[in-house]
Amino acid sequence: MLVRKRGIWREALLTGYTVLLGSLLHFVYGWSGSNVFAAGFSAVNESTWEHMKLLFFPVFLLTLLQTCTRRAADTCIPAVRAISVFIGLSLIPMLYYTYTGIVGTHALWADIAVFILAAAGTFAADSLLTRSGRLRRPWQQIAGMLALWALAFCFVWCTFRPPQLALWLDPVTGRYGL
């Protein structure tokens, strides 16, 4: 029971970190004076894809830090985090397009709730996968880290060369990417 309570606090702390850093990243591009470097990891418009970046990059940074400083007991971080961040990233468009499809419009409070739920889902999955102990093989860690780096590349690439699909469309300007 004590281990589960620690797990819940860990999930809440990591969710809070992600929500806080992701919320700050929402404004970094504007604060930087439209700096091209900041565009790679912060939101450059109001598209769903750019909001997915706000979840991914805090989780990616955390993963890199934990991987570099991990203890022997934490050997499953890259593989677990790759799967859990894919779950969280999937939740953003699923929840957003579901609620806007039902209601017919979006609301800022609901958008924020979607982001918080996606972050919480990421770390709930992270906790479950870590406790399962199934993703500890070295090749799984390599595959997880490669998947995370590939996803980071995709986020940066698609900021500058976005596909002409709804996920990348800025509903405010009607444009894609920068």
Rank of each mutant, 00 (worst) to 15 (best):
M1Q: 13
L2A: 12
V3L: 12
R4D: 12
I8A: 07
R10V: 10
L13P: 05
T18Y: 04
V19F: 08
V19S: 02
S23A: 13
S23K: 08
L24E: 04
H26F: 11
H26I: 02
F27Y: 14
Y29F: 13
G30Q: 14
W31D: 10
S34F: 10
V36Y: 11
F37K: 02
A38G: 11
A39K: 12
A39G: 14
N45L: 09
S47W: 00
T48K: 05
W49P: 06
W49G: 03
W49S: 05
E50P: 02
H51Y: 05
H51V: 11
M52D: 00
L55Y: 00
F56K: 04
P58S: 08
L61P: 00
L61F: 11
T69H: 00
R70I: 00
R70M: 06
R70C: 01
R70T: 02
R71A: 12
A73G: 09
D74K: 06
T75P: 01
T75G: 15
P78M: 08
A79S: 14
V80I: 12
R81E: 11
A82N: 03
I83S: 01
I83H: 03
S84L: 10
F86T: 12
I87F: 12
G88Y: 02
G88P: 01
L89W: 06
L89Q: 09
L89C: 04
L89V: 08
L91K: 02
I92E: 08
I92T: 03
P93Q: 06
T98A: 14
T98N: 05
Y99H: 11
Y99M: 01
T100K: 01
G101S: 00
G101P: 07
G104K: 03
H106D: 01
A107E: 14
W109G: 05
A110C: 02
A110Q: 07
A110H: 10
A110T: 02
D111N: 12
V114W: 00
A119E: 09
G121V: 04
T122S: 08
A125N: 02
A125T: 13
L128M: 10
L129C: 12
T130A: 10
S132Y: 13
G133F: 13
G133N: 11
R134K: 10
L135G: 14
R137W: 13
P138A: 13
P138V: 02
Q140E: 14
Q140M: 14
Q141G: 15
M145P: 09
L146R: 13
L146H: 04
A147D: 04
A147R: 11
W149A: 04
W149P: 02
W149I: 07
A150K: 11
L151K: 02
L151N: 08
L151R: 03
F153Q: 06
W157F: 15
T159Y: 02
F160S: 05
R161H: 15
R161D: 14
P163W: 15
Q164T: 05
Q164C: 09
L165P: 03
L167I: 13
W168S: 07
P171C: 04
V172G: 04
R175P: 00
Y176K: 00
L178V: 07
